[in-house]
Design a protein around this nucleic acid. Structure first.
Lengths: 126, 126
DNA sequence: ACTTGTACCATCACTATACATGGTACATAT
DNA sequence: ATATGTACCATGTATAGTGATGGTACAAGT
């Protein structure tokens, strides 16, 4: 596990971390069951804030790339390789692209779309 | 046509203008074919910038509430009353609400939805 | 000449969000 | 005690979008 973080890279630090762990899983440098460094340990090694690492871990767990087992630490998920191939972001963009295209076709301005989007996002009861 | 603009109202000025013209159409204080003040005239009367009035007119025309006839001025659209009842904003919100709900159900965070949305909006080739 | 809508150029204040940081605290399980 | 993930409090910087403003200019039609 060599992880390199470039603070000058425009890609957010937490995203660089996710990217590299996913890549290591895809390349099988990390296999199911392998232990990952603790959040605090990794934050210390990479000179990052623990919240930044925690954010990456939280998202990786949501995508079932890793599994956190409380006090016992964090491990590579059994289905990690398969799940690392799933591009959730692309799927979301595809959904949103379609909706926006429909609105634009109806003559709605981008500004209005943005306002409607903001309104919906800020109604938590959705 | 008495239009009152309240600069202390949190509602944007151009939106107040749209609102009041639509209302006048719905109440039939403005009927199809009625002439509206020119952009510069109305801007002057209401102490608004002409671009602000132009924005309102542009949106009203898109929604077929008014018709601009170049040098001849601006008039109430024949179908204005019917079109003033159409709530484009609500329709857009409904579309977006559905898409966002689907994404949230899939476990996508609001932050990720926002980023995907921004990405799509900034790809003009949609 | 004059007015119409429209299209550029631009600036400013305001707001919202993302990202990253820091500190403190907690239950869990060794 | 110690270490785990996690949750809450908070701040600061940077970016992006909105709303509104102002100026200049143009074709179209009287």
């Amino acid at each position: 596990m060599e992880i390199v973080i470039d603070i000058d890279d425009p890609i957010p630090l937490f995203a660089q971390l996710i990217e590299q762990i996913k890549h290591a899983v895809a390349k099988e440098h990390l296999k199911p069951g392998d232990a990952l460094p603790s959040i605090r340990q990794l934050a210390n090694d990479l000179a990052l804030n623990s919240k930044t690492v925690a954010k990456a871990y939280r998202l990786l767990e949501r995508d079932s790339i890793i599994q956190t087992k409380g006090y016992r630490g964090t491990f590579i998920h059994p289905e990690a390789k398969k799940n690392s191939a799933v591009d959730m972001a692309a799927w979301v963009e595809e959904k949103i692209t379609h909706t926006i295209a429909v609105c634009r076709d109806a003559g709605v301005t981008d500004s209005e779309i943005r306002i409607a989007f903001a309104n919906v996002m800020n109604k938590r009861n959705v």
